[in-house]
Design a protein around this nucleic acid. Structure first.
Lengths: 163, 163
DNA sequence: ATTCCACTGGACAACCTGTCCGGTCGCCTA
DNA sequence: TAGGCGACCGGACAGGTTGTCCAGTGGAAT
């Protein structure tokens, strides 16, 4: 019985494995086992377990939007009509340049991350967002730089043996 | 000579390849070549080129923060003292739970994405952010749901043969 | 003590990767 | 029009890796 807490998700070995893969994603199971000084079967078992737990989703390709021509990133706070979040979300999802949408506290607000090829292009995208039924107000700010790019590493590091 | 434009970034095959890998990241080069009805060497060459161009960064593990115990995601808009962006950014980067920081238009503002294990934990993280030298004001909103999870797929789809 | 579980170390066949080659084909240029 | 160039095909080879299975060991909980 104990606590209904089946969650002591990651132990040190899991963390080390994930850190290793974070730093060098292309490593194979065998190579990982060598680096971690563990049996190959162990690494495989850990990976399987992490996937089963939903912690590890897979290894999606990391694309650089800027290199793809989408050099602009902007954040938009969208105020929407009461009770139309679902509808608005779908409308936003239909816009290719909308790369992420979150519903946040505050008021029926949505927080949106968009990308664009240029200022003109951004204007176009913004217009598209505004045109989504249910959208009442849009406040946009452009990302000028990214001092801290998306990362998870620090959280993994915290899981390592007390040090 | 001509335009200094070595950028005809992605053609249809590149897009198809990336889409394929986006949907099934674990596919090997050989399998990709089969699915795309192309020679293996071609796929390899394309991948190499995409990497060289910086479009494809690699295949980092996709971790589910919620499954790792970090069920809360919040966005914070940080107002900072003039000319201290660099300093503040570094301070924020030192906080594990800070997963992303962008400098945005508006005023010397920073936009921050943070995660936490619980409300109490979030409080702690927020306190840490506020304590960073140079931070003047902090406005936080919690992500209640994510109607559109981070995605790039639509942008790739747009590159496919006119259809 | 006994059982359960995770890890080790080893083994095997099947498969994939990295690499290199000659041969085509379409396109740009002299 | 005749190269020359770059991209792709299809095939080949050695070496390394994966998926899988197994017996043995040691610690932890019963």
């Amino acid at each position: 019985m104990a606590s209904t807490d089946p969650e002591q998700p990651l132990d040190a070995l899991d963390a080390r494995l994930l850190l290793l893969l974070t730093d060098e994603p292309r490593l194979g199971v065998l190579e990982c086992s060598r680096r971690l000084s563990v049996a190959r079967g162990t690494v495989q078992a850990r990976l399987d377990r992490l996937v089963a737990r939903g912690v590890l989703g897979g290894f999606p390709p990391e694309l650089d939007l800027a290199a793809m021509g989408y050099g602009l990133t902007a954040f938009a706070v969208v105020e929407i009509a009461q009770g139309r979040r679902q509808e608005v979300s779908e409308g936003l999802a239909a816009i290719s340049e909308v790369c992420e949408v979150h519903a946040t506290t505050g008021q029926g607000d949505l927080f949106v991350r968009v990308v664009a090829r240029s200022n003109d292009d951004l204007q176009r995208v913004i217009d598209e967002i505004v045109a989504v039924p249910g959208v009442q107000r849009l406040s946009t700010s452009i990302a000028l730089s990214t001092p801290v790019p998306p990362r998870v590493r620090p959280l993994l590091t915290k899981l390592l043996p007390t040090r």
